[in-house]
């Protein structure tokens, strides 16, 4: 039992070291990489455009549901006028960054892990290295840099659509005066809340895309063997670990910033 715990702990520490070296190498190699800007823009387009519909849809429904639930709860205490406060603080502080990150992991993160896994599997990564092109700089770094910008943008969009969804629910469907809703939103959301939201988005983006890139890039080291099974296993591991780390990091950041 003790031996198993010890071995497991060592494995975790080793993996953390591996991931840290992977990230460090990616950024170090990116410093001298040619046409990095063009690849970052391409990665931003892939992560941003690919995820836009899902961010809009999930953001809208989150706001709608929150508005509906919130209205009936607040109505019991005769405090419907506080609906804007409830929806805005819930979305900006917690639901926006967390749900947007989970959607981005499911869409862009899984695609990244699978793409890198397949490129490893078909020797495209080895081919880059034999050409003298750093695969870290060419394939990984642009995606990580793009995530640092795309995640806050998508989160901001998610929050805006979510707030609008809350307003639709409260005012259009349930008859709350729109002015009351939006003035409550304006009073409730402070710059510290927006800072917290964006800090979470950047942190989630960096952590999740790093994990997805790491697992895809190292698909050949998968215990599932090689080929399609290795790609599938590494993609699954990337998505599961990224989802967990979003929630864990959310707790840590919230406990520091609250």
């Amino acid at each position: 039992m003790v031996r198993a715990v010890g071995r497991y702990t060592l494995e975790i520490v080793q993996s953390l070291g591996d991931v840290a070296m992977f990230v460090g190498r990616s950024f170090r190699m990116a410093a001298g990489s040619r046409k990095l800007g063009r690849r970052v823009v391409r990665a931003m387009f892939e992560q941003g455009a690919r995820c836009l519909p899902v961010i809009l849809i999930v953001g809208l429904f989150t706001g709608l549901v929150l508005g509906l639930q919130g209205y009936y709860v607040l109505n019991r205490f005769g405090s419907e006028s506080l609906l804007g406060t409830l929806v805005s603080l819930s979305i900006v502080r917690e639901l926006g960054p967390v749900l947007a990150a989970l959607m981005l992991v499911g869409q862009a993160g899984s695609a990244l892990a699978a793409e890198l896994g397949l490129q490893r599997n078909t020797e495209q990564i080895a081919a880059l290295e034999t050409m003298g092109v750093s695969s870290h700089a060419y394939l990984v770094a642009p995606r990580l840099i793009a995530a640092l910008m795309v995640f806050p943008m998508q989160t901001a969009l998610f929050c805006c659509v979510g707030l609008w969804g809350g307003s639709l629910s409260g005012s259009l469907l349930l008859g709350l005066e729109p002015g009351i809703y939006w003035s409550a939103v304006e009073r409730a959301v402070e710059s510290a809340d927006v800072r917290e939201c964006l800090t979470k988005a950047v942190t989630f983006g960096f952590l999740t895309m790093t994990l997805c890139a790491y697992h895809g890039f190292n698909a050949h080291r998968s215990r599932a063997g090689t080929g399609a099974r290795a790609v599938s296993a590494s993609t699954t591991r990337a998505v599961v670990q990224s989802s967990i780390i979003v929630l864990a990091a959310d707790y840590v950041i919230t406990s520091f910033l609250i």
């Binding site: 040619r34 078909t122 080895a126 081919a127 050409m131 003298g132 092109v133 060419y138």
Partner: peptide, 25 residues
């Protein structure tokens, strides 16, 4: 190095594949 599997980038066109080592090195 010419790989057994060719190791071509499937997301790049023929021209982009050939241009890649020139652009990057």
């Amino acid at each position: 190095f010419l790989f057994q599997s060719n190791a071509l980038f499937d997301s790049l066109t023929a021209l982009e594949n050939v241009a890649l080592p020139l652009e990057q090195t």
